[in-house]
Nucleic acid binder design. Structure first.
Ligand SMILES: [Zn+2]
Ligand SMILES: [Zn+2]
Ligand SMILES: [Zn+2]
Ligand SMILES: [Zn+2]
Lengths: 163, 163
DNA sequence: CAAAATTTGAAATATTATAACATTGGCAGG
DNA sequence: CCTGCCAATGTTATAATATTTCAAATTTTG
């Protein structure tokens, strides 16, 4: 798994996407999971956007492919991709984004720019540690963490407030 | 603002609710905000449950009051209550819960029990600090944090897995 | 009191997500 | 090769959550 580009900096995004797909194929093979054409296409669509994509956005992209899909098709694919750690759901946006740490055991922390909508996924060990500490301090056994931070990315801080 | 009971331990919950309402009235007066009857009633309904309540749950409670309300009524009240720091929205549940730190400047961390649905809100300074550090480390200016941890509360860890 | 602003009512609709059941297609065992 | 099984997909309908829009009522302000 190679290093990823920072989403809000210009980069060769096609390479970005195709690397993600290559990684995904390897991960699915390892896990003996079937990355079927629909699933792969949904993953590709999500990756083509550096910003989170709603299920119905995915759906309409599929439709413009000529694929006559209904909501369950998309949600099933998204469930699969989430289960295998290939995409994350951003609860505060009801949207999905490609995981930039697929294959690594991690707890994502998502930095969501309110101006340009780009999302950067970090793996912040210190944060996870403090969360676990705070939880166990009150006897709570943490299983799953949703951590989403909205604010301004470096580029949008620099620019006048019109993104 | 007095200390709060731990939600998953038995306590006099009516007192809990009435304290929250008293606090809310004081806070709104300070902020020159109008805690109208509808808004107060919605806050009360939310507080009466120690677990998060969906907007449509609130709506049906209002209906059984004899109040013929429509969704916007509830969402408006919820918006108001959120804006004045009296309730929080739990993004991972699409539901709302009374803030146990109203009036204090804080970033909530929510411990959500997957078995009994009770939620404990913590103010974890160390966590907030680490989040801010991680964000600013990549030049991101954090404004708003969603931090929701699901798992098992102490009581449900002890009991056989039927909550 | 009258004008302005805020709050609420009401109807329609948008958006997100799931339930339920039918169909297809690959594959293992006979 | 056929058959039965299982996972994946198709299809239709519907549930659950949230917002838009405009009208009416109420409160505040001058
Ligand atoms: Zn990830
Ligand atoms: Zn930005
Ligand atoms: Zn709070
Ligand atoms: Zn519990």
């Amino acid at each position: 798994m190679s290093a990823r580009a920072i989403p809000y900096r210009p980069h060769n995004h096609d390479a970005c996407v195709s690397q993600a797909l290559t990684d995904a194929r390897a991960i699915c093979q390892q896990q003996n999971a079937r990355l079927t054409p629909i699933r792969e296409r949904v993953l590709e669509l999500i990756w083509q956007s550096h910003r989170p994509l709603g299920a119905y956005d995915v759906l309409s992209e599929l439709s413009s492919d000529g694929h006559n899909a209904a909501p369950p098709t998309v949600y099933r694919a998204l469930d699969f991709l989430q289960q295998h750690g290939l995409v994350h759901r951003i609860a505060s946006l009801n949207a999905f984004i490609g995981c930039t740490h697929a294959g690594e055991n991690h707890t994502g922390m998502f930095l969501i720019c309110r101006a340009c909508s780009n999302v950067l996924e970090l793996t912040a060990t210190a944060v996870s540690t403090e969360i676990r500490k705070a939880a166990s301090g009150v006897g709570f056994q943490a299983e799953n963490t949703t951590l989403e931070v909205s604010g301004l990315c470096p580029r949008c801080q620099a620019e006048p407030d019109d993104g």
